[in-house]
Design a protein around this nucleic acid. Structure first.
Lengths: 128, 128
DNA sequence: GCTGTTGTTGACGCGAACGTAAAGGTCATA
DNA sequence: TATGACCTTTACGTTCGCGTCAACAACAGC
């Protein structure tokens, strides 16, 4: 019974998520992560791990780091007054709409690529 | 009965698609569009229009311009020999897999954001 | 004590996707 | 003819998301 849950070094996390240490330091500089320090070295908590997972998924779906930071800040209100809750809800709804639109665009592209693949296959067969 | 179908000026197209003329010239320099010239000024055909639509949708779903150019080139084979058809098919299948993965990531994020929105709403209601 | 591994903070570099002048051609219209 | 609208090329500037040294500290093992 030492402290409060596991901690991770920067290489632990970088390996676990397939990013470089540089990336993690950059994310910290951009306000996306806030690891504590033991001396000078960074110690990442499980909360930091979860935040990182969020960051990477956000990035994968096309959010900019600035947008991701916004969303993360909405997630960690601390003390949340009504107008801020409303603002958070509004922004969240906004993001949802954008994400759904993006998914629709992807679906449309997938459909077209599937058709293209089908014509390619038929041309290959007819050539056999 | 003049020529072969409508043509568009650079501002026609930029307005129609909500991009700047600079963007269209840039896409041409990158080999994504190939408008003909009347004198020095660019004339875009309906085929160019369709290509542009493809480019913008590709960009919206996260493709780089280089990837988009690849796909466009696959679409316009001219004379297609078997190994090139096979290569085109392979790349297309690859893109499809990537797109489906991205869509899944988006779905997961949408789900989480919906839950977050729900908790925000309940906190706002309980506060009423 | 030396080497190696892992960590740190700058600071400069880079590719992608354009933005933004700068300097000028062409055409219509007043 | 000159004023403006629209087009051109050339070329440097900018933002984002890191990569890549450089120079140093801290600790482990031989």
């Amino acid at each position: 019974m030492e402290g409060a849950g596991e901690t991770y070094t920067i290489t632990d996390l970088s390996r676990a998520f397939g990013v470089t240490a540089r990336t993690l330091r950059f994310y910290e500089a951009e306000g996306l992560l806030h690891p504590v320090r033991r001396g000078r070295t960074r110690l990442y908590s499980r909360a930091d791990r979860a935040r990182l997972a969020w960051v990477l998924r956000g990035r994968a779906v096309g959010f900019s780091l600035a947008e991701i930071r916004e969303l993360l800040d909405l997630y960690a209100p601390g003390e949340a007054r009504r107008p801020q809750l409303e603002a958070a809800l509004a922004k969240t709804v906004e993001r949802l709409a954008a994400l759904r639109a993006q998914r629709d665009a992807i679906d449309a592209t997938v459909t077209e690529l599937e058709q293209f693949a089908a014509t390619l296959r038929s041309r290959l067969e007819g050539d056999a």
